[in-house]
Amino acid sequence: MTQAPESTTFDQATADRAQAIIARYPQPRSALLPMLHLVQSVEGYVSQEGIRFCAGQLDLTEAEVSAVATFYTMYKRRPCGEHLVSVCTNTLCAALGGDEIYSTLKNHLGVGHDETAGEPGTPGSITLEHAECLAACDLGPVLQVNYEFYDNQTPEKALGLVKALQSGERPAPTRGAPLTDFKQAELQLAGFFEGRDADLDGPSAAPETLRGAEIAQERGWDAPAVPANAEFPALPEKK
């Protein structure tokens, strides 16, 4: 009875997963970030009940969990759509067209930042956000759907993508695994990949990624040859 009352949202399987996360770390509290991802995989956002769930699993106060949950942008306060579309509008992507992409999608969906078009969670519902630099600048402007990359976007391409998502299609990302939904992505962020081995083969190397290596190959450039038997230095004297 000191334990939190039985949660209706978070079942035993989720509690088991929470415990599995805790087991990964030398100290339990380290599990909090992945556990909040786990909460999102169940609810599509971090609800008060989700906060209570984490607090209960980790013996923290709800204030302590709230302090963490509200610090990070990936933890959503309101239920997300089936898909989360994040458009990079940091300077470089923006200069290459990111701002335009974002405003195109905004107009199309009729929502603003961190808002959802459609009933959250239902098929075709989409949460839109502008994101900070997504570490794909050489492929800019980029956007992500459920954190899978869609590179070298234009307003037209992005609009096509979003319309497809709305109609229930799941166009393949440029880099990443076959598209699922926001909750599935969150489950993987929590570190659970069961049954999704094929995801690994989703493409990752865009031409840009390989550019330097390929130019070097073409031109016969290389790092200096590795010596056959490099020696370790002598053991330094103990001071």
């Binding site: 083969d201 190397a205 390989l210 330097g212 290596a213 070097a216 031109r219 450039w221 790092a223």
Partner: peptide, 20 residues
């Protein structure tokens, strides 16, 4: 003189299924 590009870390990236 070393070459203008010296792929060390990036060299394996061009391999098929380089991540395995």
């Amino acid at each position: 003189m070393v070459d203008p590009l010296t792929p060390v870390l990036t060299k394996r990236w061009t391999e098929p299924r380089s991540w395995t």
